[in-house]
């Protein structure tokens, strides 16, 4: 039987909050306009979702079975360390392989630093000049 029902319910509610956060992240990945904002949604909130649900599972096993699972703690630590690194790497690969920003995003200052020999006729730069002119108007 359950040793500590309050701790057990806390674990289950943490898992529920984590799943709701994961659905929010899914809406972000389907609604946002370009790869960078999508990766913003996918990396942050899905990492928080998996951290919450793994912490809930750890609390549940600790309360229900009296089992202090060091593997779930290692999994929490590992996901917390590696998910932002993976998001950073895939965003950098996307930018250097030339994926465009969304329409209407602001100044793209990295473009002049990374590709100094290109002309200013890309759509990202054009949209930035358009926003500059609109701000002047």
């Amino acid at each position: 039987m359950s040793v500590n029902p309050i701790l057990e319910w806390t674990g289950v509610l943490l898992i529920l909050v984590g799943s709701l956060m994961s659905v929010v992240s899914a809406f972000g990945i389907i609604r946002l306009p370009d790869i960078y904002t999508r990766s913003h949604a996918a990396t942050k909130s899905s990492t928080l979702a998996v951290l919450l649900s793994l912490l809930g599972a750890f609390l549940y096993f600790w309360a229900h079975d009296g089992f202090f699972s060091i593997r779930i703690l290692l999994g929490i630590l590992f996901v917390f360390l590696t998910a932002p690194v993976a998001g950073h790497l895939i965003c950098r690969a996307a930018y250097r392989s030339g994926v465009k920003l969304a329409e209407g995003s602001g100044d793209d200052e990295l473009h002049h630093v990374l590709f100094p020999d290109k002309k200013d006729d890309d759509s990202s730069n054009r949209s930035s000049t358009i926003t500059k002119e609109e701000s002047l108007l």
Binding site: I15, G18, S19, S22, S25, I29, I35, R38, S39, A42, T43, S46, T47, A49, V50, S53, L54, G56, A57, Y60, F61, I72, G75, V79, A83, A86, G87, I90, C91, A93, A94, S97, V99
Partner: peptide, 23 residues
């Protein structure tokens, strides 16, 4: 890269689903 981001998200979600199934 969109597909890679979504694949990474599926992997992370699968992780927490395995935790729930083991409960």
């Amino acid at each position: 890269p969109d597909r890679v981001v979504a694949l990474d998200m599926i992997g992370v979600t699968l992780l927490s689903m395995i935790a729930i199934v083991s409960i």
